[in-house]
């Protein structure tokens, strides 16, 4: 039973010696048609995000939408309280004195933009994540030290596909390959 589940949900964790070989292998695997790849490195490697096909549009979009929503709500709140709920003339100004509403809206808008970006970043990174299948591999501790890893599933669950991917990874200069549960 346990054996069966393992076979159905396997992924390969390949260790590389350097950032250059990681990037070269990543590019080649993407060209082979692999899409579900994860990369791990001790420091940010330039080009990896692009090679993974990563787009950060979600963060900007979340920040923009939250900002627009908060700005609209903040302006409405002030307009409602000054014009509808408690119409009170101050300093001879019109009830709907828009210049007075702007600073509050700008401050709220900035807060919303920052919060939106941070929340979208945390959620987009699937954090908080106390467990990751890659932790099953003994060597993975080195991901925060001196080793570079790629994690990807074979095309299907057959032994044949697993063997093929493993050979491909070795030709791409992987120095060690471990099997971990698929995430």
């Amino acid at each position: 039973m346990a054996e069966q589940r393992r076979a159905a949900t396997i992924a390969l964790l390949a260790r590389f010696e350097s950032a250059e070989t990681l990037l070269a292998a990543l590019t080649a695997l993407r060209r082979d048609g692999h899409r579900r790849i994860e990369a791990f490195s001790p420091y940010p490697v330039e080009g990896v995000a692009e090679a993974l096909g990563f787009r950060s549009r979600g963060v900007a979009l979340a920040a923009l939408l939250l900002t627009l929503g908060v700005v609209t709500a903040g302006y409405f709140m002030q307009w409602y309280s000054a014009v509808i709920a408690y119409p009170y003339v101050v300093g001879g100004k019109p009830l709907h004195g828009w210049p007075a509403f702007v600073p509050v809206v700008v401050a709220l808008g900035l807060l919303a933009a920052v919060l939106g970006a941070v929340i979208a970043m945390v959620v987009g990174n699937r954090l908080p994540q106390p467990y990751h299948p890659a932790f099953e591999a003994e060597s993975f501790l080195r991901a925060s030290d001196d080793a570079f890893f790629l994690l990807l599933p074979p095309d299907d669950d057959s032994d044949e596909a697993r063997r093929r991917l493993s050979e491909r990874l070795y030709t791409l200069q992987a120095c060690e390959i471990e099997e971990v549960p698929r995430c």
């Binding site: 300093g91 001879g92 100004k93 004195g97 210049p99 007075a100 702007v102 600073p103």
Partner: peptide, 12 residues
């Protein structure tokens, strides 16, 4: 530009 506007608009 807005700082100038709001100061002068408030002071009137």
């Amino acid at each position: 530009a807005f700082s100038q506007l709001i100061i002068i608009w408030s002071g009137n």
